[in-house]
Design a binder for these strands. Structure first.
Length: 549
RNA sequence: GGCCCGUUGGUGAAGUGGUUGAACACACAUGCCUUUCACGCAUGCAUUCAUGGGUUCAAAUCCCGUACGGGUCACCA
């Protein structure tokens, strides 16, 4: 029996050979230095913050160099398959404005010439290459059952050997005759295809990682599984074939992959492929009970990229935050270019951190606050409305009905040198402006009175203020002067310095009186500029509100 | 346990043998400004770069050991 015949029996349904596929996916026509990168998530129906992080890196790296960034779905594990997993991923990434050049982007249909971009549709391709390996005696069928595998592991534990299927432990199957193997196949025994490893654990491979530098690891000598019983490849094999055929130049992925690097190097060599450049990104971590750990999708809601969307944290803010983690000099650049386009920033491998950063929500919110403060009132209004339509429909209705009041309110102390920073997420807008809407301002509200709490005094202050002093036509300075005059009349200090020197001479000060007006009209002691609020409310509404006291 | 990687303040970090008396940002604290809050401004916050040793005129920066943290050892990615 020839090896070809043997391979045909093992993999009878393969349509093409490897040469066919190599010819089908020619080298990309790109300028020198252009990077081809990719994001390769599994469709668990959920985009991890770490995937977004990688996506941003991959996408920037490719586009700043005039290259290509594609999306490939790694759905080789059918047990983990989730319904609508692929759409979920594409959808989430779309919302984060990650722009891929190729992938299953058009409702799951491929865009680009190097597809299919979904691994489950590439079965024939993988098998063509496995077949080639079998013919070259670099791979063999393995009939090892789970129990047999466990028995080996137990033995290895007992004698404190390394654990795995390698060298002497694999000899029986490695040396099995083709005839014997065919007999087992014909008998219907299930089998996988394993690599016949040529590696030597005592020798080392040195891999140059674009981020971590030289990594030296013992060679792989495990006869790892290439093709599972169902004929679908393992991650390792799919990675080698896909990234070669799709002509990836830079593999960006999480650094949990470093330990399988020797496998990948051996696979590329066995297949006669050129090893791509690897860039292993440090994983984002989280601290809990004083311990660091990988941010986990089961325990941490913030691991899911949808979390930020639900909270109303702008996509852009998340991107800015991830960029600060990605490149240590980004923050400085952004500070100097607050309105700059991120695309103008050049991402550099050697500015990427080798250690895993702790996820810092406070920092994210701070970035978000600053970002929101630079938007126009119209933009904040529109974004808040878009958010509310999905997550708070009552508020959305109100915003649509009271568009003008909302925008006027959001515009107070905005679009200036030092804009206000009242909220970090769209979900916080409501609590900041609700009182501006007439229909929200009814009886039985909770007022946040500060120093002056006596009802008769409060009413007295307001009555006199409205009757004698308040004039909507006043400018800011005049407006405040009037409040001071009011203070003088009622025995409150209009001058803070005088008040501080002799507080006992006054009933209170101008800040206390202003607060009374503020709280009476809004219930809150924390609001933007009072004069502007009053102008938006209008005299009639102001009087109505005073009447409610 | 084997194998990898890492360790600069509460957090992200700058730093690649000598103007580093260790940038910058977040957080925190205090004060100022002030119609509250926020903004802004000012000041403070690592006598020291996990630790022990070595190389050197000189080390956070180079070398070795130790400790600690993380990752990984699947027919999961």
């Amino acid at each position: 029996m020839t090896r070809e015949e043997f391979a045909n029996i093992l993999l009878p349904d393969v349509l093409h050979d490897r040469a066919y596929y190599e010819a089908k996916y020619p080298k990309r026509n790109l300028e020198a230095g252009a990077m081809v990168t990719r994001l390769a998530p599994s469709p668990t129906g959920f985009v991890h913050i770490g995937s977004l992080y990688q996506a941003i890196a991959a996408q920037k790296l490719a586009h700043q160099s005039g290259g290509v960034c594609f999306l490939r779905i790694e759905d080789t594990d059918q047990k983990r398959e989730v319904e609508n997993g692929i759409e979920g991923i594409i959808n989430s990434l779309k919302q984060y404005e990650v722009s891929f050049d190729e992938g299953p982007l058009d409702n799951g249909m491929d865009v680009g010439n190097y597809g299919p971009y979904i691994q489950s549709k590439r079965k024939d391709i993988y098998q063509a290459f496995v077949k080639d390996l079998i013919i070259k005696d670099l791979a063999y069928p393995s009939f090892l059952t789970e129990e047999e595998k466990e028995a080996i592991t137990e033995k290895q534990k007992k004698i404190k050997s390394r654990i795995g299927y390698f060298g002497p432990w694999a000899m029986d199957e490695r040396n099995m005759s083709m005839e014997m193997a065919v007999q087992k196949v014909k008998a219907g025994l299930p089998y996988v295809i394993r690599l016949k490893s040529k590696g030597n654990f005592l020798k080392r491979v040195v891999i140059k990682d674009a981020i971590k530098g030289d990594i030296s690891i013992p060679e792989n000598d495990m006869d790892i599984v290439l093709l599972k019983q169902d004929g679908i490849p393992t991650y390792h094999f799919a990675h080698a074939v896909d990234d070669t055929l799709m002509h990836t130049t830079h593999v960006t992925r999480g650094d949990e992959w470093i330990s399988s690097l020797p496998i990948h190097v051996e696979l590329f060599e066995a297949l006669g492929f050129k090893v791509p450049t690897y860039a292993h990104l440090a994983t984002i971590q989280k601290e809990e009970d004083g311990k660091k750990r990988k941010i986990s999708k089961r325990k941490d809601p913030e691991a899911n990229v949808m979390y930020y969307l639900e909270k109303g944290i702008p996509v852009k803010a998340v991107e800015l935050y991830l960029m600060t983690l990605l490149n240590s000099n980004f923050e400085e650049w952004y500070l100097a270019n607050p309105k700059g386009n991120i695309q103008d920033f050049t991402l550099l491998f050697d500015k990427m951190s080798v250690g895993g950063a702790l996820f810092d929500m406070e920092k994210l919110l701070n970035i978000s606050k600053n970002y929101l403060s630079l938007l126009t009132a119209e933009e904040v209004y529109q974004n808040t409305l878009d958010w509310a339509k999905k997550y708070d429909s009552d508020f959305a209705n109100l915003l649509e009905k009271e568009r003008e009041v909302a925008i006027l309110t959001l515009n107070i102390e905005r679009e200036s040198e030092k804009p206000r920073k009242d909220f970090a997420m769209y979900s916080e807008v409501k609590e900041n402006i609700w009182y501006m809407f007439k229909e929200n301002f009814t009886e039985n509200l909770k007022y946040d009175w500060q120093k002056i709490t006596d009802k008769t005094e409060i009413k007295h202050i307001l009555d006199i203020y409205l009757a004698k002093y308040y004039d909507p036509k006043d400018d800011n300075e005049e407006w405040f002067n009037k409040v001071k005059l009011l203070c003088d009349e009622l025995g409150y200090a209009s001058n803070m310095k005088e008040y501080k020197q002799n507080p006992e001479k006054f009933k209170g000060n101008v800040a206390d009186v202003s607060t009374v007006i503020r709280v009476a009209l809004t219930t809150s002691s924390r609001t933007p500029n009072l004069k502007d609020i009053m102008a938006i409310l209008g005299m009639q509404e102001i009087q109505r509100r005073v009447g409610l006291l």
